[in-house]
Design a protein around this nucleic acid. Sequence first.
DNA 1: CAGGCATGTAAGTCATCACTTACGGTTAGT
DNA 2: ACTAACCGTAAGTGATGACTTACATGCCTG
Lengths: 106, 106
Amino acid sequence: MTYGRALAALADDTRRQVFEQLARGPRSVSAIAKELPVTRPAVSQHLKVLKEAGLVLDQAEGTRRIYQIDPAGLGPLRAWLDQFWGVALDAFAAEVERTRDEEQGQ
Amino acid sequence: MTYGRALAALADDTRRQVFEQLARGPRSVSAIAKELPVTRPAVSQHLKVLKEAGLVLDQAEGTRRIYQIDPAGLGPLRAWLDQFWGVALDAFAAEVERTRDEEQGQ
DNA sequence: CAGGCATGTAAGTCATCACTTACGGTTAGT
DNA sequence: ACTAACCGTAAGTGATGACTTACATGCCTG
């Protein structure tokens, strides 16, 4: 049930940009903020949310704090999504079938 | 870039319950609302958001309106997620490598 | 130890949003 | 045609949340 927090975390646009930056490699808070149109404290708050969602890990390194993607974080979200993937395909197949029958009917 | 709307749509808990109901088969608005602790207009508004996110299709059927999952709706979201799946695995592998080296060092 | 740097947190503000009730429109049945 | 059922939308409200500035903390360097 942890995918709920992951979804909420990734729903915000700025937070998604933070996450995408970390996907390109570990970065410090200031480094992230430097490439975004928001202040550093805002980034800090976003990172807190991402961390609580299990999407991100942090690690102290001197005075700086290095954040990186939590490899296992996307697992539950992906699993939840895949749960509907089959359903969607079934629905698609049913739709194709229905459409075919209708065309047959004409 | 349509995965943004999909994420925002699925971030809400009630809206996710609506979506999960539709995953079990097409349903009318009232039928959905009957299984939720919110009023019918609320469900109607949620369906509007889901529809604008491309996650849901509607179809008039007499006085009722039948909603169903849009089979193609989850595609972009899944693709976006998979984009990070490889990255996460790489990060995990790098982490394992790094840990191994550290243990080697001791 | 003083100063600068990197960060987290508190407090306040403004917008967004989920929800409600009230209303209007459309369709089916009698 | 009247009535009932189903639905979407308007308007209003309360809460959540994203952002800012200001402040406090910890670490490294001279």
